[in-house]
Nucleic acid binder design. Structure first.
Lengths: 216, 216
DNA sequence: GAGTGGTCTAGACCACGTT
DNA sequence: ACGTGGTCTAGACCACTCG
């Protein structure tokens, strides 16, 4: 009884769809509502959400159909491990001004930096440089740094904008990523903001291009 | 009177927000409904959509607030011009198999290819290689090729998945993009599908990294 | 004309946070 | 206790498509 009714309807619909051919029509909203003895508006919300997710699609006033999308193969993928390389509780590198500007900080504001390598099995996936305003990082958080820097959490609870930069792998990271010198890679410059829009993290990620770099 | 009421409410709300400080609360859904003499559900749909767009954000059961996001500066940007470089009504290059596979075509299926350069003012932005199943391209469409290959249109009416590939600029495109040899760039490999999920176009885009390459 | 999705109404109850 | 958003109901009218 925990989940709202429209979510239960979404599940129910997904199970129906799983056994249907792509492009075959599903029941009309009114039929589903009658079948499940619920309001049409509740059915509607479920169908709308599944359309947004790409499971279903609507075709004008002719009906709603099962999509032909492959189910997005979220690779069952081995779990990722992270290895912290550096932690600078007061960071003062060459790109300080660039980062301060990205985070919309005044120049006197001090920066915190964490650099880590992300691996899957033995394979290096990427290097992440994580920047934040020093005063945003509490002492508690410094205690369990790696779980604090669980970026997925922040991305989900906020809003992200990113810029992609093609470049040759920096010498300092070539060995870590097990790449030859001067291999082209993509760096993602990412600003993670709270849901209200104020910046939280600035992240520069250096991807190993040999391990499925990115997708959009 | 053309647009539905909830869209008018969205506009009305956006105008309200434009004159408010970030993080200040907007009226409650019930208040807005009363003020505009409409149903709360209609207000709700408008607010929900603006939250999805990032103009507003909700905070638990405490209210709805104006976001601090910069308004996405869609650069007023000069209009882009496109120059067609090649049209192969039957294409048979080295990457034929890769493309056929991406488009989920059988091997005997023949490919159509269009290559074009996109410029803004005098500056080359990117080279686009557009592939499609030959039988998907009608004679009419061959008549007005460039407007047919208005990818934005297809992206809007469909669903896109993409993969980013770091590389050095191919020799054949270096001069067109006004880049030196061996400069790192990003190529986007993009599959554009109809809303029902069947592939339509496969596009490989070679971005000029000096002109705001991409964003996600 | 019958059926579809798109929109809209005027109520209702709930869990939750603030006061 | 009160106000908020989150959910839900049982109706309604419209524009559109299809047979």
């Amino acid at each position: 009884m925990g989940s709202p009714k429209y979510m239960q309807v979404m599940e129910w619909l997904q199970n129906q769809c799983a056994e249907m051919e792509p492009h075959s029509p599903i029941d009309s909203e009114r039929e589903i509502a009658a079948k499940l003895s619920i309001s049409r508006m509740t059915v509607r919300k479920a169908v709308e959400e599944l359309c947004r997710q790409g499971v279903l699609y609507r075709d004008g006033n002719r009906g709603t159909f099962v999509s032909a999308l492959k189910p997005e193969k979220t690779p069952p993928s081995q779990p990722e491990r992270r290895r912290i390389l550096f932690v600078d509780s007061v960071y003062d590198g060459s790109n300080v001004q660039e980062v301060q500007k990205a985070l919309r900080l005044p120049e006197h504001e001090r920066l915190f930096r964490l650099v880590r390598l992300v691996l899957c099995q033995q394979t290096p996936l990427r290097v992440e440089e994580i920047y934040a305003a020093e005063h945003d990082v509490s002492d508690e958080e410094l205690g369990s740094l790696d779980s604090f820097c669980n970026l997925e959490q922040f991305r989900l609870n906020g809003r992200t904008s990113a810029h992609l930069e093609p470049m040759l792998v920096p010498a300092k990271y070539a060995r870590l990523l097990q790449l030859r010198q001067n291999v082209p890679i993509i760096r993602k410059d990412e600003l993670i903001c709270r849901h209200e829009g104020t910046p939280y993290f600035f992240v520069q990620t250096y991807y190993n291009p040999q391990t499925s770099p990115l997708s959009a």
